[in-house]
Design a protein around this nucleic acid. Structure first.
Length: 228
DNA sequence: GCATTAATTCTGT
DNA sequence: ACAGAATTAATGC
C-alpha cells in the first residue's frame, strides 16, 4: 500500500480501543432495543454464556479480556460509546468466549437476534454497515496487536498506543493505570512504568491528578517511526 | 456524620 | 521483589 494519498495523510494507528463518535444513526432504531444499565466494576458476561443478542453501548466503557486457567488476565480491547458488543459471537453461532467487565457505569441497548436480522439489517442499511464497521474494527485490532507485538519494541508500542488513542478519542487525557495498559498491550507492568517515566522526563507526557496527559501528541507520534 | 484501621491498589527502584 | 504513597472499604463511636 504505497500510494500518494496514504503517504500524504497517514491513517492513525489502530489501537485496542473502540469508540464511535457518530451514533446518530442509531436513534431511529433504539425503540427496537431494550435499555440496560451496567454498574461500574461489575462483570457483564463470562466465557460460556449464551449470546442471543447484541448490545449497543451508549455510555461508559467496558473491558473485554481473556483469562488463562491460572487466572492470568489479557485484555483484548476496550469498548466505549457507539461500539457494539456480541455481534461476532451471535453471527458465528458461538458462545461468549471472553470476560466482559464494565469499568464504569454504562448504558447500553440490547437488540435480539430476531430484531437484528429482521428489522435492523432489512430496514436500515446504514446500521448494517455500522455492524460491519464494528466487526471489522475488532478484526483489525487483533491483527494489529499480533503485528506490533511481533515487530515493534515495547517502547514504540506504548507510544503508538498513546498516539492512536489521542487521535481516535480526540483527547489528550488518558485515565488508565500502568498495569491496565500492560495487560492491554501484553507487556510487563514495569516496562510500562519505565517507558512512561521516560516520556515524562522528556516532557512528552504529564500527570494531571491521577490521569496521564499527552503533552505533545505529534512528538509521541514521531517516536513511532524514529530510529531511536 | 466522622475518625481510625485494615486492605488493596498504584508506582518507582 | 519490595516499599512508600495513595485509595478504598470496613468498623466503631
Amino acid at each position: 500500500m504505497t500510494n500518494a494519498a496514504s503517504a500524504a495523510t497517514p491513517p492513525p494507528p489502530i489501537v485496542p480501543w473502540m469508540e464511535f463518535q457518530n451514533q446518530d444513526m442509531w436513534e431511529k432504531a433504539l425503540h427496537l432495543g431494550r435499555k440496560v444499565i451496567w454498574k461500574g466494576k461489575t462483570c457483564v458476561q463470562r466465557p460460556g454464556d449464551d449470546v442471543t443478542s447484541i448490545f449497543l453501548i451508549r455510555e461508559g466503557t467496558i473491558k473485554v479480556s481473556a483469562t488463562s486457567a491460572e487466572g492470568v488476565q489479557r485484555t483484548l480491547w476496550f469498548m466505549g460509546p457507539g461500539s457494539i458488543l456480541g455481534e461476532a459471537a451471535l453471527f458465528a453461532g458461538q458462545k461468549n468466549t471472553h470476560y466482559i467487565d464494565a469499568v464504569e457505569d454504562c448504558v447500553a441497548y440490547e437488540f435480539s437476534h430476531g430484531n437484528v436480522v429482521e428489522r435492523l439489517l432489512v430496514d436500515h442499511p446504514d446500521l448494517g454497515e455500522a455492524l460491519l464497521t464494528n466487526l471489522a474494527t475488532k478484526s483489525y485490532i487483533m491483527s494489529t496487536q499480533v503485528e506490533e507485538s511481533t515487530f515493534l519494541s515495547a517502547y514504540r508500542r506504548i507510544c503508538r498506543f498513546f498516539y492512536g488513542l489521542c487521535l481516535s478519542r480526540n483527547s489528550r487525557q488518558i485515565s488508565l493505570s500502568h498495569s491496565v495498559i500492560a495487560e492491554l498491550l501484553g507487556l510487563h507492568r514495569v516496562t510500562v512504568s519505565n517507558a512512561i517515566g521516560d516520556l515524562k522526563r522528556r516532557g512528552l507526557l504529564e500527570e494531571s491528578g491521577h490521569d496521564l496527559v499527552v503533552a505533545d501528541v505529534e512528538a509521541i507520534g514521531a517516536i513511532i517511526n524514529s530510529d531511536i
